[in-house]
Amino acid sequence: MELQGVSPEGVRGWVKQAKIDEGDGSTGALTTAEREELVRLRKRDREQQQTIEILKKGLAFFAKETMK
């Protein structure tokens, strides 16, 4: 049975996540806050990795230019 576009699987997922958020989840299960932090940290890591790559390329360019 589907209630206004919500599937039974969706409701089960919400209930499971609510239990995790209340501290009743299985070992290693992430709370909503932990999941949000993980997403934020992964995004920051990607941005930092891109910055590092840009800096490496810039350093290589300037090192090459000074050797001329």
Rank of each mutant, 00 (worst) to 15 (best):
D24M: 00
G25E: 05
E65S: 15
G28R: 04
R46M: 13
R42L: 09
T32K: 15
L41Q: 15
R40Y: 05
K57P: 01
A33V: 04
A18F: 15
D24N: 14
L38T: 06
L38Y: 11
T27Y: 10
S26D: 12
G28L: 07
G25M: 04
V6T: 05
M1R: 12
G5C: 01
K16S: 05
K56R: 03
K16G: 07
R12V: 01
G10R: 11
A60G: 04
E53C: 00
A18V: 08
V15C: 07
T32I: 14
R35W: 05
Q4G: 00
I20D: 01
E34G: 01
T66Y: 10
R44E: 14
A29K: 00
E53D: 08
E65H: 05
I54D: 13
E36C: 07
E2W: 00
G5D: 06
T66N: 13
Q17M: 14
D24Y: 12
G58P: 02
R46S: 12
L41G: 01
A60L: 07
D21C: 14
K19C: 15
R42Q: 11
F61Q: 11
R35A: 05
E2Y: 02
R44N: 10
F61G: 09
M67S: 07
R40E: 09
W14I: 13
T51I: 12
G58T: 11
E22R: 05
G28T: 03
Q49D: 03
L41Y: 07
A29C: 07
Q17Y: 07
A29S: 10
G23L: 00
G23W: 10
Q50K: 14
R12G: 11
K16Y: 06
K64H: 14
Q17E: 12
L55E: 03
D21T: 06
E22Y: 04
K56N: 00
R44G: 02
D45V: 09
A18N: 10
R35T: 04
D45G: 08
V15Q: 06
I20T: 12
L30E: 06
E53K: 09
E34T: 02
L3K: 03
R46Y: 11
L55N: 09
R42F: 11
W14Q: 13
V6R: 11
E47H: 09
E53H: 00
R40F: 14
G28Y: 07
T51S: 14
F62P: 02
K16P: 00
Q17P: 00
W14V: 07
K64S: 14
T31Y: 02
K64E: 14
Q17H: 12
F61S: 14
R46F: 12
I52F: 10
I54T: 10
A18R: 11
E53F: 04
Q50H: 15
R44L: 12
K57N: 07
I20W: 09
R44Q: 10
K16C: 09
G5Q: 01
